[in-house]
Amino acid sequence: MNMIIDAHTHAPGYRNLGGRPTPAADFVKAMDDAGIDVSLVYTIDGLIFQNFVECNDQLHEFVQQAPDRLVAGPTVNPRYVEESSAELRRCRLNLGMKGPLKLHPWLQGISTFEAYMDSIAEACTELDMPIIFHDGTPPYSGSLQIANLAYRHPDLTVILGHSGLRDTWLEALAAVKRYPNIWLCFCGAAPYGIRKIVKEADTSRLMFGTDNGFSSARGGCEYRMAQITSLAVSDEVKAAILGGNAQRLFGLSPSATR
């Protein structure tokens, strides 16, 4: 039985805005309802408040509530190159986070064309840590803008976390075809775009995600999964997109995630 891996979720957050920590049990319940085995979980607060060390600790606490089901991917503020590099090492080597670095250019106010991004890309390459980007939202989260970072750092794996969203999936398709170190996560791309991408792209670099924890969980996970299960492709390709590819990329074993 293949694992179903949701490659794009967020620990429910806004703690620093007076929100309450959400029990991971609720999050896992949504996964159970949709039939998802493992979720890669990223922060929300860390993308907004920039106290990334604190937010990564909170994220770690969250995934520790269900360590066999939840895998954390840290965030940093790339403008602080030294602190960010140290934090990435801490998250990977001390906290055991197996997930990618999550960056959100328009929320964080960064561009992949700024010089500090090259330093962050080098730090991630050294740790064998992919970077998953929010993409599909110009002016600073264009899929092809982000893909240029993959072009500049061919040993880095860059994941376009939304495959271009509804408007620019054509950019995501162009990127995954042109750059062998680009991966796509289907999470909000136009279904027509998803069908086209699966037809034309290397299907061993495609994943799926739900944005669980950020967008509404109820029905949302089912909807995103059905976009993949309803594709007119072989079961092998579906299984790869729904989990096999992510399992390979992040080195996840079926029983334990740590």
Partner: peptide, 8 residues
């Protein structure tokens, strides 16, 4: 944006 960007 969205459809007249240099990288396109």
């Amino acid at each position: 944006p969205i459809n007249a960007q240099p990288m396109q």
